[in-house]
Design a protein around this nucleic acid. Structure first.
Length: 890
RNA sequence: GGGCGGCUAGCUCAGUGGGAGAGCGCUACAUUGACACUGUAGAGGUCAGAAGUUCAAUCCUUCUGCCGCCCACCA
């Protein structure tokens, strides 16, 4: 029979050609879109909105790929699955980049003006937002693009305003002067989470403050001598004998001569430094707390530019408390106007000259750096807007104790809970322009009006203050304020939409551990308060990506991998995705990215592609989709591969259900490459396989690529489309149904014995230096020829000429293991002798174990039974080898 | 100072209370009805160290040592 004409399939699989073509088709057919459908269980993931400051980076690979996998998997399960995409305006991050950009034209934010600057920001968003989406599409991510949102969309902005106004009316948003993190370069406050610690070499300066009454006073130790200008006290531990006599007395600041009290405070560690701490409440968090406890004045001496200034006062400081420090202002002017680090040098020099500097000890400390600009953060007192967190955190803590949300891995829940328990008020006002402007207006008398819009603000102002003359607060909100609303704002909240009804709460949130507290906890708190439910059932935490040596990837270290440049073009999106998932292990919190996995994955795709070519080129052709031959026609090899396929599908299903993506990828690779290609495909080349192999190959490949599709969407689609199939695209094909994959434990074990024997024969071939092209000779027990397909399989797989010998009884397995290679007797003698020695030692080990009374008595019965079975097997094997050895001609 | 994770072959990592595994790299051979982006075979490990629990520990417990991360007010 002439095989039907088939188009020639290319020899290698080319992701660069296939991937864009298939993605375009998916987009066109709208497979990623769904509508809320109460008839199907929802499976919803809100995509953590990427910043608009660049394209996809390595972190997106590890965090977003699992989201795509989960969504595709649940869609194939027939659920109402939707992955909701969007982007974050990333207030400070974007503004910082933008300011640098316009600086190249010699412009500044102020020279452009607010309107023009914001117009530029929107243009930036258009351009780079599009770039991110392109990267995501190249990676094969399939979110519901029709539902894309941006944190500054009209709807989302309305949600932001409503939340701010409601929280204000409930007394949870307030304005106050507090110590905040000031970034002198970005010219804005930062949240605690945007501050990073970095080790740095400096000095611990020991400075003597003389007693006011002329005594020696004491020596303080500080890393920030320049702030001594704003010292208001020296603190010592109440139990510290060295300083007890000074408590309540005054000491005098060198050079400027101002007297300040010595106070006792438990927070002072007597063993550190000199045990005496200068207290500068306006420039240090600890000092601020001491200042509050002791009701100390809080003068500021470093201004918003990071320069020393004559004292700036907290707006609410009384004139009486200002007086003693104002009197010193003139002497302080010697340092005024200098940058804080320059002022430090001058002050240390002057202290040395005047003999006040006692010691200068090299010291390693941690500097707070802005994660945006890398500038050293200046803690300073400032009038800002805050959210009172305690009342928001409490319900979240209680929910967590009741088990929601569930964290995977579980231990990250403790990180989350610990964060909630020690939560501090959240500074939400930023001095950048790009963001949601505070819905706050002030009257000429600085009365505060909070309203949804200007009209409402004016109305309130007229009612309350008799005039509607208002100026709007220029500040904007912390970017996390809007992203904290993400899972419900994108579903249309505060409107009650079908999406909100059926898709909230989401099923899973996937993110990395560095933003558990920064983002996850805020979504929970705000979701609980405004929608009444925690926004997601499960939080899956992905590992952070490091380089091969465990270092963080960074451009400055030169070890950063850009997936869009370094991976996708070389290995394809499938290879890149597969490698990320392969390296993800549930309990691991770090992923040392190893490009070798990408290479392996790419070769895997080619391997599968060639298995497809083989299948499609069978001379007898292929039957229709998913039609298996009747069971009685299946060969042992067929039954074995179907059994293995089912085990693989089962493993992969469980793995996806449990977020164990590495396990799923391992199982797919193992089955696809080794089990299927190396053994089954080879086995179909044997005599006797022709009748069933087309159907089985087609069925197995079809089922297998569906199980692999969520991980490697492109190559699986391409293979599926080439095979006989039902339906338009694998994206909406059904997940492999275990019940439809037959399993044959006994026959599969028989083929297992074939594999075992073939490996032994190949090993012998190698030892005897029989070239692979040459056929070796084996003898099989005559009775084995009656078993359909066994001898032919062995002959093909071992590449051997077969003859028979009399004898061989027992099970099929025993007879398979009794197959023997033919070689000259010296070689065989050597081989049998070695094998006998090995088996003897195994038998001895096993016998010794079973002779151990406590083992037999105490080990579980099935373990003992298994050991006995093993021993029996060894003995039979040993006997076979001895017989073979005895039978050798001398 | 607390907490967490890791330590298994040269490299990157799986894994299991009962005979140590994969990929890459290395060695040898090979162009076999798809695949050299391939196949076959091989070398390579006191499973970080010590103690304990157990009939049995690479796996469980404790301690120690490194490596990394997170949190915290040591100026």
């Amino acid at each position: 029979m002439t095989p039907p004409e088939r188009p020639e399939l290319p020899k290698t699989y080319d992701p660069a050609e296939v991937e864009p073509r298939l993605y375009a088709r998916w987009l066109e057919s709208g497979v990623f879109h769904d509508e809320p459908d109460p008839a199907r269980p929802p499976f919803i993931i809100s995509m953590p909105p990427p910043n608009i400051t660049g394209r996809a980076h390595i972190g997106h690979g590890s965090t977003y790929t699992p989201q795509d996998v989960l969504t595709r998997y649940h869609r194939m399960l027939g659920q109402n699955a939707d992955w909701l995409p969007g982007q974050d305006h990333a207030a400070i991050a974007t503004e910082t980049v933008l300011v640098r950009e316009i600086a190249k034209e010699g412009a500044t934010r102020e020279s452009l003006g607010r309107d023009e600057f914001l117009a530029r920001a929107w243009r930036w968003r258009e351009q780079y937002g599009g770039e991110i989406n392109e990267s995501f599409q190249r990676l094969g991510f399939g979110p519901d693009w029709d539902r894309e949102r941006f944190t500054m969309d009209t709807g989302l902005s309305a949600a932001v305003t409503k939340v701010f106004v409601d929280l204000y009316n409930d007394g949870l948003v307030y304005r106050g002067t507090r110590l905040v993190n000031w970034d002198p370069e970005a010219q804005s406050t930062l949240s605690d989470a945007e501050v990073e610690d970095e080790e740095s070499d400096t000095f611990l300066w020991h400075i003597r403050y003389l007693a006011e009454n002329g005594g020696d006073g004491l020596v303080i130790a500080t890393t920030r001598p320049e702030t001594y200008l704003a010292d208001v006290a020296v603190a010592v531990h109440p139990d510290d004998e060295r300083y007890r006599h000074l408590i309540g007395k005054n000491v005098v600041l060198p050079i400027i001569g101002r007297a300040i009290p010595v106070i006792a405070d438990d927070s002072v560690e007597p063993a550190f430094g000199t045990g005496a701490v200068k207290v500068t409440p306006a420039h240090d968090a600890t000092d601020y707390e001491i200042g509050q406890r002791h009701h100390l004045p809080m003068p500021t001496v470093i201004d918003y530019d990071g320069r020393v200034a004559a004292p700036i006062w907290r707006y609410d400081e009384t004139p009486e408390r200002r007086a003693p420090i104002d009197a010193q202002a003139e002497k302080m002017h010697a340092y005024a106007g200098f940058d804080r680090f320059e002022a430090r040098k001058r002050i240390v020099d002057d202290l040395r000259v005047t003999g006040s500097l006692v010691e200068e000890k090299p010291y390693r400390t941690t500097l707070p750096l802005s994660s945006r600009t890398r500038a050293v953060i200046e803690p300073l007192l400032s009038l800002q807007w805050f959210v009172k967190m305690q009342p928001l955190a409490q319900p979240a803590i209680e929910a967590y104790r009741a088990g929601a949300p569930r964290f995977v891995p579980e231990r990250f829940g403790r990180t989350y809970a610990a964060g909630l328990e020690q939560i501090r008020d959240w500074n939400i006002s930023r001095q950048v322009w790009w963001g949601h402007q505070l819905p706050v207006w002030y009257t000429p008398n600085d009365d505060v009006v909070v309203a949804h819009d200007e009209a409402e603000a004016k109305r309130i102002a007229r009612e309350r203050y008799g005039s509607d003359e208002l100026r709007r607060d220029p500040d904007t909100l912390d970017t996390w304020f809007s992203s904290g609303l993400w899972p419900f704002s994108i579903l249309g909240w505060p409107e009650r939409t079908p999406e909100l009804d059926h898709w909230y709460p989401n099923q899973v949130m996937v993110t990395s551990r560095d933003i558990i507290f920064l983002w996850v906890s805020r979504m929970v708190m705000l979701g609980l308060r405004f929608v009444g439910k925690i926004p997601f059932e499960t939080v899956f935490i992905t590992p952070l990506v490091f380089d091969l040596h465990g270092r963080k990837m960074s451009k400055s270290l030169g070890n950063a991998i850009d997936p869009m440049v370094d991976l996708v073009p070389k290995y394809g999106a499938d290879g890149t995705r597969f490698s990320f998932l392969r390296q993800m292990r549930l309990e691991s919190q770090e992923l040392r990215f190893d490009e070798r996995y990408c290479d392996e994955a790419k070769r895997f795709a080619t391997k599968l592609w060639n298995a497809l070519r083989y299948t499609c080129a069978l001379p007898e052709g292929l039957p229709g989709a998913a039609v298996l031959p009747p069971r009685e026609k299946l060969t042992v090899a067929d039954k074995w591969i179907l059994t293995e396929l089912r085990a693989c599908a089962e493993t992969v299903t469980h793995a996806y259900d449990g977020f164990a993506f590495g396990v799923a990828a391992d199982a797919l690779l193992q089955f696809g490459w080794y089990t299927f290609c190396d053994w089954y495909v080879e086995a179909t080349k044997a005599e006797g396989q022709q009748e069933t192999r087309g159907a089985v190959l087609s069925f197995v490949l079809n089922t297998f690529v569906r199980a692999m599709h969520p991980i490697a969407p492109f190559v699986t689609e391409e293979i599926w489309q080439t095979l006989p199939h039902d339906g338009a695209t694998i994206v909406t094909a059904s997940w492999p149904d275990l019940a439809e994959i037959p399993s044959f434990a006994e026959d599969a074990a028989v083929f297992g014995a074939v594999i075992e024997k073939v490996e032994q024969l190949r090993n012998a071939r190698s030892e005897w230096a029989i070239a692979p092209k040459d056929w070796m000779r084996v003898e099989v027990p005559a009775s084995l020829s009656a078993e359909r397909g066994i001898v032919e399989s062995i002959a093909t797989l071992a590449r051997a000429h077969v003859s028979t010998y009399d004898g061989g009884d027992g099970s099929v397995r025993d007879r398979i293991l009794a197959v023997r290679a033919v070689a000259d007797s010296a070689k065989l003698r050597e081989r049998y002798t070695r094998e006998i020695a090995r088996l003897e030692s195994e038998v001895a080990r096993s016998e010794k174990k079973l002779a151990n009374e406590s083992f037999v008595a105490k080990a579980s019965p099935d373990v003992v039974a298994a050991e006995r079975a093993k021993l029996e097997e060894y003995r039979r094997e040993l006997a076979r080898n001895r017989t073979a050895l005895d039978g050798l001609a001398d």
